[in-house]
Amino acid sequence: MTGVQKILWEVAGAALLVFAGLVLMENRATAPPADTPFRPTFALPDAEGRLRTTEEFSGKHLLVFFGFTNCPDVCPMTLIEVAQVMDGLGGQADLVQPLLISIDPTRDRGLELAEYTAAFHPSILGLAGDEVQTRAAAGSFMSARTIPARRTVTLWHTAHHST
């Protein structure tokens, strides 16, 4: 097992790994309902290395997908869905920022992450941090699992497929 794979399995074991899915996050401009403990945050670099944070997208809805680019079936499917959602939004698409947060960041950084996300939809922003940043982001989103009635798709990272 490589170091990356170990890290990924740790993440997987610690937190049911990842949830890839589509989490429509309430923007910070609107006060969240008092009974909503879901306050995901992230500070992760994009493909060019610029740090992007939750605050930057204040006022927008975030469509977040935790995934990785090294999976041929379910990850493209999800990104295709994201692209369809963005196209379907038409003039309201500006209100939504789709994000792919990599759970295999070391490898994804070296794999033209921006080119990959753009191939599905130009609006999708790929983020790939280090282990600490990724854990922190994933951990904050994990709380969403306790919130009912949100459409989430979870991705189990099959790191052992990737040698």
Binding site: L16, F19, G21, C71, P72, D73, V74, V153, T154, L155
Partner: peptide
């Protein structure tokens, strides 16, 4: 339970008088 996994399939059954599809979100070749 909302978690997608992609286990290795040793073989994909193709029963008599039926159609099997390798398609997105199901069986697939990697």
């Amino acid at each position: 339970d909302g978690v997608a996994s992609m286990p290795h399939a040793p073989a994909i059954p193709v029963p008599a008088d039926s159609t099997v599809q390798l398609e997105p979100g199901g069986y697939h070749g990697m």
